[in-house]
Design a protein around this nucleic acid. Structure first.
Length: 383
DNA sequence: AAGACGGGGGG
DNA sequence: CCCCCAGTCTT
């Protein structure tokens, strides 16, 4: 297909700009396909500044395909702690194990093989093939769609899958011969540094002169995008169960199921509260009723509650508003009769502050646990 | 096509 | 405080 002047100008100027302005990022220091793969998975839904320290720690712990393939899954989850979308970590290790076994540890370089790896969709397939192997494949992420929708004044809704397909066709036309790696990275770099979601820096943009969106005064209103649904609110009560006797100074945590939200992460026991429940200390009676019943299913008894703090956490689709209570295990006369009911179910643990490094927690529980251990380790000021 | 799946930054 | 960011898998 014949390229227009506007298209040739775009590719040429964008590449020139990128070679002068590209950031020195850890995964850009060589062309190790494994590094590029790890970085692209981490960069899904996550900004560069957040990823950098995770990337360094991850590569330090799992320097090669083989090292990651042979690592315990819990170590991988712990290395991902706080980064979110934890299925990315599980899928990455699963796919790395497949590359280790089926391809002898070499990341494949065909579209069919790469796109069949777990956790690798259309964007990441193009990113790996182009950045690691310079194959002329499009890597269309949100940055790319924003840049192209503005430069070519494309008003398609970028939330629709069809739009991504159209953008991929456009990128194929734009990739200069033999320069897919730099060109795809240049597109994303422009979106990250210049053609930003709000207040784009058009005056320093290398392609402003032929930008149709800018010419039409549409640079602030493109891309067209349907709004996401707001997260549904959920009131929850969480429990800081304070150990006694041999568990003094420790708290009870548990591991989540293998599937679904925060799969296999560790957490404080917590349970759903009714929508019309009272927030804060006023909800104590209802919280005791619900938490006691909830945790009794695992044969754990609790005494009276004390309200400690509120904690909020927003996922894409749920907003947790949690009231956090402390309690002691129930003084149970029944425990004299049998050992069976006194055995803690296997997905529970008693942990002290030093034990937190051994378990992967979602951020909301790190905040609560840190607040608790900090407070309980500091002597109360004399009044 | 729509929902599930985390977490952070900026005005 | 409300706004934004948006890849892949599952249903």
């Amino acid at each position: 297909m014949e390229r227009t002047l506007q298209q040739r100008y775009f590719s040429t100027e964008l590449l020139n700009w990128y070679r002068q302005h590209k950031r020195d990022l850890p995964w850009r220091r060589n062309r190790n396909p494994y590094y590029i793969w790890v970085s692209e998975i981490m960069l899904q839904q996550t900004r560069v500044d957040t990823v950098i320290p995770y990337f360094h720690r991850f590569i330090d712990k799992f320097p090669t395909i083989q090292a990651l393939a042979e690592a315990p899954e819990e170590d991988v989850l712990k290395a991902w702690e706080g980064l979110g979308y934890y299925s990315r970590a599980r899928n990455l290790q699963s796919a790395v194990r497949e590359v280790h076994e089926r391809y002898g540890g070499t990341v494949p370089d065909t579209k069919e093989e790469v796109s069949s790896l777990k956790g690798v969709g259309p964007y990441t397939t193009g990113a790996i093939l182009s950045i690691a192997y310079d194959k002329p494949e499009p890597a269309v992420d949100g940055n790319v769609m924003r840049v192209l929708s503005r430069y070519f004044l494309i008003e398609d809704d970028i939330m629709k899958p069809k739009t991504r397909v159209r953008m991929e066709g456009l990128v194929r036309e734009l990739i200069p011969e033999g320069q897919a790696s730099d060109f795809n990275q240049a597109l994303m770099e422009l979106g990250a540094l210049v053609c930003t979601p709000k207040s784009p820096h058009c005056l320093t943009c290398p392609v402003m002169a032929h930008c149709d969106g800018r010419a039409a005064g549409r640079e602030e209103t493109l891309p067209v995008k349907t709004k996401a649904k707001p997260p549904r609110p959920e009131a929850r009560a969480a429990l800081l169960l304070e150990g006694t006797g041999e568990h003094a100074g420790k708290l009870l945590i548990r591991q989540r199921p293998a599937e679904g939200l925060l799969a296999r992460m560790w957490e404080l026991p917590h349970t759903l509260m009714p929508d019309d429940g009272l927030p804060g200390p006023a909800g104590l009676a209802m919280a005791h009723e619900r938490l006691a019943a909830h945790i009794a299913e695992d044969s754990i008894g609790i005494g009276g509650l004390t309200w400690m703090m509120q904690a909020e956490h927003t996922f894409s689709h749920i907003h947790w508003k949690m009231d956090v209570y402390t309690a002691r295990p129930e003084e149970l006369a029944l425990s004299l009769f049998s050992g069976a009911s006194a055995v803690l179910p296997s997905h529970y643990r008693w942990i002290g502050p030093q034990d937190m490094e051994g378990y992967a927690f979602p951020n909301v529980f790190i905040r609560i646990l840190s607040a608790y251990f900090e407070q309980s380790s500091v002597p109360h000021p004399q009044s």
